[in-house]
Design a protein around this nucleic acid. Structure first.
Lengths: 166, 166
DNA sequence: AATATAAGTCAACATAGCTGACGTATTTTT
DNA sequence: AAAAATACGTCAGCTATGTTGACTTATATT
């Protein structure tokens, strides 16, 4: 888009900030992530554990380095929560069949069950919202959230979310 | 909705988890909040400062206790970041005219300017996304995010987001 | 045999949340 | 006027989750 004189319709020299969406996004995400907290707390876990459990469950046999790539945290950060999840038997590790340096990650039955309970809470909130909206909404929302992701990461995310777990 | 035998169309006893939206929400929010980080970092601030600055800017003259109510953090947590913002002249405090126990909060010119730069970044991401979507999308997205908020907090948020700042 | 890679570990640190206890100024209630 | 409640600040210490840097071990690759 080129800039040229007389282009602006506004008296201001830039578009108005979208405070409505900025704030709605903030509050919506807060409450969305708040649902699982109660359950996690009972087990002595936090949101970091939730994220690890979730992405391991969704990507069975994932390599540690690939998990780090999804979460965008350091291996030292991951190590702490992963150790707890393994110690408490929510996640298990197996050496890779082809490359035995790898410790491929899987949820245990216990881990899968917790994951299911957590995602059920979040799904309930999502479904309740969508049930009150027009028919086309589901796809619109997906499209919006997808376009809010950094352009260079979209294809990776697209690949992730199209996996089937259940 | 009543439950009755034969109601289920599925072989499973519950609706499928919406992993797509759960994950899209996660990645979208991560990148959305990531934009301001660079700018904040240069000033030695974090996201906590951003939130405080934002809501003070959007609610000029807000009382400390009302800010705590919006942010849902403790006053000790707030105190730390607020002190820095006041010391660095991004926020100023004035005793309430009617009740002099209050320390009403305002952004300084410097604070308002930073706030504008930060919200511009986030608005750009939002507008870029919406520009690629069908016409009805804006309202759908707002409705969705609104419905994702806890029911008992919606009216309060509705009130917040309808304020005009600029 | 040398090097690179996958992963783990130790230590130290930063940010941003928390609880509990207490202080001070001011307003409201009795 | 005295007592109680309120708005706010502060001290001390804890927790969760992120960071950097340095080093080790096992295994693959060159």
């Amino acid at each position: 888009m080129a800039s040229y004189p007389g282009q602006e319709m506004n008296t201001k020299d830039s578009a108005s900030p979208r405070f409505d969406l900025i704030e709605l996004f903030f509050f919506a995400y807060r409450d969305f992530t708040g649902d699982p907290d109660v359950l996690l707390d009972e087990l002595g876990f936090g949101r970091a554990h939730h994220r690890v459990l979730h992405f391991v469950h969704r990507n069975p046999g994932i390599r540690v380095s690939d998990l780090l790539d999804i979460l965008k945290i350091t291996k030292q950060s991951l190590a702490r929560v992963l150790k707890q999840l393994v110690d408490d038997d929510f996640i298990c590790q197996e050496p890779g069949a082809l490359d035995r340096r790898q410790r491929l990650l899987y949820t245990t039955e216990k881990g899968a069950e917790l994951c299911a309970r957590l995602s059920k809470l979040q799904t309930q909130r999502i479904n309740k919202a969508i049930s009150l909206m027009p028919d086309c909404s589901d796809e619109i929302i997906r499209q919006f959230l997808y376009l809010m992701i950094d352009e260079n990461e979209r294809s990776e995310v697209a690949h992730l979310i199209t996996k089937q777990t259940d």
